[in-house]
Design a protein around this nucleic acid. Structure first.
Lengths: 154, 154
DNA sequence: TCTGAAAGGTGATAACC
DNA sequence: GGTTATCACCTTTCAGA
């Protein structure tokens, strides 16, 4: 919610693809001076548009060949909050979203093997009705947040 | 699948939290020399454990306040492949996973407003039965791939 | 808000353990 | 694989527009 201009989106495009580029190179790619570029980046960080920088890790190559989505159907606010707590406490739960519909939580989980899912399912079973879906492959596993069409191209 | 040691996991922990740290600082945090640290990082990249570096962008602050999961129930390989193609072609579809169960695709989509979802749903309707779930909030929106328990702590 | 130049910090490499 | 030393280059800052 930030009124980003075309230059901001160029910076976001580059930094989402390669967060380790130097300011000199980043500045060259967006057609501005390094100093002004640095100031823009700091502004994007301060406004909370950029929340951090991460190495993208391939879970499979890091020893977690299995990704699963676990949806949970809880009955009431109390259990829902406990699902959130459990998600936050469990390192292999990489995401937890509260959603509309019959199920109220969607968890993305990575594990080294299927048996490793059991303890989590057992815990979730005490808070609601969990249902597990395994990821077979990911035609698109990641993409940058794109520039909206209504922002000029400059 | 790479047989990562405790030092590799320290590097992954730091780079997943802050991909822009310099080698000097990274080396200091893991207790090794900058040169050896750089060599480790390059090895992790070459082996495909680290697939890249990204700025983490908050979709809401970037103008996409709505995140949705769209599951698609297609009938057959042909349509499934066309869903993959559509996902890859559509910038606001950030992820597409083929999954087990009744539905065979799970898409994560961001949009500026609900009407912006319509064109995608329309296209998916020609390939299968889409069902949309909206994200209300994300108790855990991101987490690093964690060091497995069986790797020594060093 | 951007540019340009000075000063201190950083990344890649080589020689050696 | 690891370290230390080196040098060229890059990031940051600040004055000026």
């Amino acid at each position: 919610m930030a009124d980003l201009d075309a230059t901001d989106w160029k910076i976001l495009a580059v930094l989402q693809e390669d967060a380790r580029v130097g300011y000199r190179e980043l500045a060259r790619r967006i057609g501005m001076s390094p100093a002004a570029t640095g100031a823009r980046v700091r502004r994007l960080e301060r406004r909370g548009v950029i929340t951090g920088y991460s190495a993208r890790v391939d879970p499979t190559r890091a020893g977690y060949p299995i990704t699963a989505y676990v949806v949970v159907n809880t009955s009431g606010r109390r259990q829902s909050l406990r699902v959130s707590d459990l998600s936050i406490r469990t390192p292999t739960v990489l995401e937890d979203h509260r959603v509309t519909g019959t199920d109220d939580h969607v968890l993305r989980v990575i594990v080294a093997s299927l048996p490793d899912l059991e303890p989590l399912i057992d815990e979730l079973n005490e808070l609601g009705k969990p249902a597990t879906t395994l990821v077979l492959s990911s035609p698109k596993s990641w993409a940058p947040v794109p520039k909206p069409a209504h922002v000029a191209n400059s």
